[in-house]
Computed example of a mutant assay.
Amino acid sequence: MLDAHRLALLAEVAHAGSIAGAAQRLSFTPSAVSQQLAKLERDVGAPLVHRNPRGVTLTAVGEALLTHAETIVGELLTAERTVRALLGEEPAQLTVGTFASAGATLVPAALAGFREAHPAVALRLLDLEPPDGYGLVSSRELDLLITHHYPGAVLPDPRGLERSLLRSERFRLILPVGHAKAAVRRLTLRGLAGEDWISGSPGVPNRVCLEQLADAAGVRLRVAHESRDYQVILALVEAGLGIAFVPESVLERAGGARIEVRDAADAHPARDVFLVHHKRPGRLVTEMADRLRA
Rank of each mutant, 00 (worst) to 15 (best):
Q93K: 05
L126K: 13
I72M: 14
R81G: 01
A117K: 14
A92L: 02
A79S: 14
A104R: 11
D132R: 15
P119K: 15
G74Y: 07
Q93F: 01
P119T: 11
R84C: 03
G88N: 12
V121T: 14
T71Q: 14
G97N: 05
A79E: 10
V107C: 03
L76D: 06
T95K: 01
P108S: 02
I72W: 11
V121M: 07
L87H: 11
T98F: 00
S101K: 04
A110S: 14
T82S: 06
L76W: 11
T95P: 02
A110L: 11
A109S: 13
S101M: 05
T71G: 13
H118Y: 15
L94I: 13
G74S: 07
R84D: 10
G88F: 08
T98V: 02
A102P: 07
V121S: 05
V73C: 03
F114V: 01
L128C: 07
L87Q: 14
A104G: 01
E80A: 03
R81L: 09
E129T: 15
T98N: 02
A102V: 12
L87V: 08
G97D: 08
T105I: 01
Q93A: 06
E80D: 04
T105M: 00
T71L: 12
L125S: 11
L76C: 05
H118P: 14
T105P: 00
L126G: 01
T98K: 00
V121I: 13
L111S: 04
V73I: 09
L126Q: 13
T71N: 15
F114W: 04
I72L: 14
F99E: 00
L76P: 02
T95Y: 00
S101Q: 03
A117V: 09
P131K: 04
R84W: 06
T98D: 00
P131M: 07
L94C: 08
E90I: 09
P130W: 03
S101T: 06
P119W: 14
R115G: 10
A92N: 02
D127Q: 15
L125F: 12
E90L: 05
L125E: 09
L94D: 03
G97Y: 06
A117D: 09
P119E: 12
G97V: 04
R84H: 13
T95R: 00
E80F: 04
A79Y: 07
G97M: 09
V107G: 01
V121H: 08
R81F: 00
L126C: 03
V107S: 02
L123P: 09
P130L: 01
E70D: 10
Q93Y: 01
L106P: 01
D127C: 09
L106C: 00
A79V: 13
E75T: 06
V96G: 02
R115V: 03
D132Y: 15
V83W: 08
P131F: 10
